[in-house]
């Protein structure tokens, strides 16, 4: 019913649209406004990732014959002085919001985690909107635990 493979440049415009619709929901809670032509910029940024080698990857989930989701992952150095010398980061994972793709996100995440595991990474981090309890529940069911909250404050809060 579906397959997962490394993304190619031919996938990027469709994945960018999937990203855009997902990002519009995610960033509704933050003081960030999606730029005009944001999908084109997303596609350009991820085109560079396609050739980035072993430190990052973009996988596409193909449902039938068309891309219906993706996961973007990279390996980064651990924080200075900490024991984890490298951490896997799931940067983005999204499905086409116009369809129903049972099991697809779990399969994408599993694929990303196995890609990380093959590179010796033992811990992975994902950030989830505070407002999205469904997304949080998904990640908890996938074995993730809350470990940090991400907060925001206007710089003008203090005595300027």
């Amino acid at each position: 019913m579906f397959s997962i493979r490394p993304a190619s440049s031919d996938d990027l415009s469709q994945l960018a649209q999937i990203w855009y619709e997902h990002a519009a929901i995610v960033f509704a809670q933050r003081p960030a406004i999606l730029a005009q032509r944001a999908p084109e910029h997303w596609a350009a940024a991820h085109a560079a990732r396609l050739d980035a080698g072993e430190t990052c990857a973009l996988f596409v989930l193909v449902w039938g014959t068309r891309p219906a989701g993706y996961v973007s992952v990279h390996v980064e150095a651990g924080r200075p002085g900490h024991r984890d010398t490298q951490i896997g980061v799931i940067d983005e994972a999204a499905l086409d919001v116009h369809g129903y793709y049972p099991g697809a996100m779990r399969a994408l995440v599993q694929h990303a985690r196995q890609w990380l595991s093959n590179r010796g990474v033992t811990q992975t981090i994902v950030r989830v909107p505070r407002s999205s309890t469904v997304e949080q529940a998904f990640w908890r069911s996938a074995g993730a635990k809350d470990f940090e909250q991400w907060l925001i404050l206007p710089s003008s809060f203090g005595p300027q």
């Binding site: 992975t124 994902v126 950030r127 909107p129 505070r130 996938a142 940090e148 925001i152 404050l153």
Partner: peptide, 13 residues
Amino acid sequence: GGRPVMVRMRASV
């Protein structure tokens, strides 16, 4: 006045 916007979650690979 800090406002939580995202949760960072961690899992074993």
